[in-house]
Design a protein around this nucleic acid. Structure first.
Lengths: 130, 130
DNA sequence: TTTCTAGCTTGCATTTTGCAAGTGAGAAAT
DNA sequence: ATTTCTCACTTGCAAAATGCAAGCTAGAAA
C-alpha cells in the first residue's frame, strides 16, 4: 500500500505517480503502448528493473491492469484502468506546459491531446473490427 | 542546467518538476506561501536541506524568483514567475485526480482552484489595498 | 530437440532523499 | 553594546531510489 504524506490531494497524487517514470509510462500507454517491449522501446530508455517495478506499483495502485493472455500470446498486454485514464487531463496539462515554456520540445502526436479518459478501460479491448 | 532525457514535453517537464517536492512547493506558493519558514510549516514536513536545494533549482529553472528584501525584512520573499505560475492548470488537474480517485483526501482551499497564472508575477506585489 | 525471444530478476554502483545537528547574519532584548 | 534569539540556511552521514549490466525462464519458432 502507498502511504500518503498528508491528506492533500496534490501531495497524495505525487505519492503515487510523482517519480521520474510513472507518468512517462502512462503517457506511452495513452499513445498506444501495451507491452513490456513497447515501454523498453520508449526514447527515454527506462531500465528493465525500474520498468518491471513501476508496472507492478501502478498495477497495485489500480492505474494499470494486465489483460488476459489469449491464444498465441505469451503474456497479456498492459492497459490503463479508468483510474489510470483519469490522469489524462493532468498529462495533457503537463505536456502543454512543456511545449509552451521549454525551448525546442517535440510536438506530441495528435492523439495525446485528443485522448479522453472515456476512451480507455472499455469492457472488451477490440483487436480487429468485425 | 537541467538535462532532458528526450524532447518529449511531458518527460522534459518531469525532468524539472517531476520529483517528490517541487510541485508541493509550488502548490504552497499558489495558496500563499512566500518565505522559507512558510514552506517548512507545510504539513508534509520537508527537510531543510531539500527545501533549500529545491528552491535553488526552481529559481535556476526560472519558475521561482526572490523578491528584493525591503526595509525591516531580513530576506526577500519567494514568488512564482510567469513560467512557474503557468503550471497552475497542471497542479489543478493533479488535485482533481487526487480528490476524485483517492479516498479520504482533503478538500483544497478555494483559491487553489480559483488561481490563474495571470494572478502571479505582477510587476509589483500588493501587500495592502490602498 | 535446439534456438530464439519476450519478459522479467539479481547484484552492485551511483544518485537522491532524509534526519539531525550546526552555523552566521541580522533583529530584539537587556 | 553586548548577549540572546530567530530565520535561513549548510554540513555530515544514513537510507532509499535509480541505473547498468548480466543472467534466467517459459513458451514459440526452427
Amino acid at each position: 500500500m502507498t502511504k500518503f504524506r498528508t491528506g492533500c490531494p496534490i501531495a497524495s497524487t505525487l505519492d503515487i505517480v510523482g517519480d521520474k517514470w510513472s507518468l512517462v509510462i502512462i503517457r506511452a500507454m495513452v499513445v498506444g503502448a501495451t507491452s513490456y517491449s513497447d515501454f523498453l522501446a520508449m526514447p527515454e530508455k527506462i531500465a528493465t528493473n525500474i520498468l518491471a517495478e513501476r508496472l507492478r506499483r501502478l498495477e497495485d495502485a489500480g492505474l494499470v491492469r494486465q489483460t488476459q493472455a489469449r491464444q498465441g500470446a505469451t503474456r497479456g498486454a498492459y492497459a490503463l484502468t479508468a483510474k489510470g485514464a483519469a490522469l489524462i487531463p493532468a498529462l495533457q496539462a503537463l505536456a502543454r506546459w512543456g511545449e509552451e515554456e521549454l525551448p525546442d520540445r517535440w510536438t506530441p502526436p495528435e492523439r495525446l491531446y485528443a485522448a479522453q479518459p472515456a476512451d480507455f478501460d472499455k469492457p472488451t479491448m477490440v483487436t480487429s473490427a468485425s
